[in-house]
């Protein structure tokens, strides 16, 4: 099997230092919506300056380089033991090169391992075997500030008058955006999962963040819900950094997964504006980054 450690290292570098084009475009469009010389417009201008500088200097966009979450789709017969070892080695190297901050903290002793490897859950790696001979790896770096404002609701929720339907979903998602205020580094992106158990629901809410900002949900009902969430979350007026303003979220992505008859979870993963996700595809000797 190929040794792809260097290629994984490049994936990490790219994700940490270069904001994806769709996110940058959405931020640029948002600047024009904010009032001239307002604090919220100033925040967006600073954000864009930082995006350019980080790319130019190849240094982290945000100092919280987050939990590295890898989604690996690998060809039949490849060894996940080897892929995992290579990914972990790349993460250690990326930490040495200061593309990543040492982020793995032992929850009992409080000790930071210093190299971004912890137990089997850190870094997080999801493996899925695929037909064909292409390896594709998505990497998301999810910071702690935005992860902390994520939320999971169990419907029905009488306080929010939210029943087990898409109207109920709308109500709890808007509540989550309100609760988050600017603390998750608004403008954010909402990854929403409906259904699942508590664990699979949160996993699905993150998977949906791998979608492009300007794509359309193939499910018409969910597409309509995404549009409503985007529009109404922005009406809340929380604005960039919570300074007030027009841009509270850059997008909303919703995924429905099967659930038990007894459970109806709505999980919201809030992604900060520093929406760091990159993809690497390996076909034969060719490695393509996007």
């Amino acid at each position: 099997m190929l040794n792809l450690t260097d290629k994984f290292l490049e994936l990490v570098r790219l994700a940490a230092t270069s904001l994806p084009p769709d996110v940058e475009k959405a931020l640029r469009e948002s600047v024009e919506k904010e009032e001239p010389s307002s604090a919220s417009r100033g925040a967006l201008e600073t954000i864009l300056k930082n995006v350019e500088l980080a790319r130019e200097k190849s240094t982290p966009i945000c100092q919280d380089t987050g939990t590295p979450i890898f989604y690996v789709h690998y060809p039949q017969g490849w060894s996940t033991i080897e892929l995992k070892a290579q990914i972990r080695e790349a993460v250690v190297e990326a930490t040495k090169l200061t593309y990543l901050r040492p982020n793995a903290v032992n929850s009992v002793t409080g000790k930071n391992t210093g190299d971004n490897t912890g137990d089997e859950h850190y870094p997080t790696i999801h493996f899925e075997e695929m037909e064909g001979n292409t390896l594709s790896v998505d990497l998301m770096l999810k910071g702690g500030g935005c992860e902390n404002v994520g939320a999971q609701y169990k419907l029905p929720n009488s306080k929010l008058d939210a029943g087990r339907d898409l109207e109920g979903v709308r109500r709890v998602v808007l509540d989550a955006v309100y609760q988050a205020q600017g603390k998750g580094c608004a403008p954010g992106i909402l990854g929403v999962a409906i259904g699942g158990d508590r664990g699979s629901s949160f996993i699905a809410s993150k998977e949906t963040l791998l979608r492009q900002l300007d794509d359309k949900n193939p499910d018409a009902e969910l597409a309509a819900l995404e549009d409503t969430l985007f529009e109404q979350a922005n009406q809340l007026g929380i604005g960039p950094m919570g300074f007030g303003g027009e841009t509270t979220v850059l997008g909303a992505k919703v995924k429905a997964v099967h659930r038990l008859p007894a459970s109806y979870f709505v999980s919201i993963s809030y992604m900060c504006w520093a929406y760091r996700r990159r993809k690497m595809t390996v076909i034969g000797d060719n490695v393509i980054y996007a």
Binding site: A43, T46, I47, K57, I61, W273
Partner: peptide, 30 residues
């Protein structure tokens, strides 16, 4: 004072010198 969240490379330009560090055993971030 509110600094701009996520503007990490830009803000680092304002740090002209690291004069020292205490409690590095808390880990680099802490």
């Amino acid at each position: 004072f509110h600094a701009i969240g996520g503007a990490a490379t830009l803000i680092a330009q304002s740090v002209k010198e690291v004069l020292g560090v205490h409690k590095l055993d808390f880990g680099v971030p802490e």
